[in-house]
Amino acid sequence: MVSSAVSDSSTSDSSPDQTPLSRAVLESPDIHRALTRIAHEILERTKGADGVVLLGIPTRGATLARRLGDRIERFEGVKIPVGSIDITMYRDDLRLRPARPLGHTELPPDGIDGRIVVLVDDVLYSGRTVRAALDALNDLGRPTAVQLATLVDRGHRELPIRADYVGKNLPTAKSEKVKVYLQETDGRDAVLLMKEDAK
């Protein structure tokens, strides 16, 4: 089920139709509240976000990382470096599908050596994306610590990986799909849970 975990977080379908087969589990205000809470939690756990770098996994993780960075700046007046880390070249399922286009990797100018890196993704599922991100980080520098923030944790881990900051724990069946829509890329904020045969 690796590939379906991938499509969950990287789908670009717009116009999410509400059908009996799909329901919104998070609406725009819920997403805003969840991100606000995660921003506070990051500040709390890292004692003021000193030395923190937020790295989002494209596409929607990168958007979420920017939103978290904006919130932290608003709450505490500190501007923390925000970037993105593409994991395509590190995937373990590359050979299952035709070669994919690459996402954008943008590291902060000061790099990640000696920093606390908070990886940000939209959906945590099998954990394979996060494993790939850890491998990619390994080639980019040596952070003092790596933490993980995710908007939705839907369970069904296939690797020993857990999130440090979770927007919502969402019990799902493996046959279901979770789709995240964000204003910046999809024109609205929502998280949808869909039955397998939903189009």
Partner: peptide
């Protein structure tokens, strides 16, 4: 090389 060999072949 990535686009020719990186995916399923």
């Amino acid at each position: 090389l990535y686009l020719l060999l990186g995916g399923e072949t």
